[in-house]
Amino acid sequence: MFRPSHFASVILFALFASTVFGITMRDTPRGMVRYGIYCFVLFVGSAIVLSWVMFLIAR
């Protein structure tokens, strides 16, 4: 059984989803890479921000 940490799960999810988004949503290789990185940063960044928000709410 594969047991990644929660953060590793976020990274894996963001990596795979961003790869598909980048390839399918842009026409040029440069645009694909840029959009893929953009999506990856948004996925991981929003997960981190929401985690802190929930942590502060729960205190």
Partner: peptide, 21 residues
């Protein structure tokens, strides 16, 4: 190249999902 990247991403995601039970 696009096909390989898409296949790798989607199959890996599916397989890891199963590996995580």
């Amino acid at each position: 190249v696009r096909g390989l990247l898409l296949a790798a991403s989607i199959i890996a995601m599916f397989a890891l999902g199963l590996a995580m039970q």
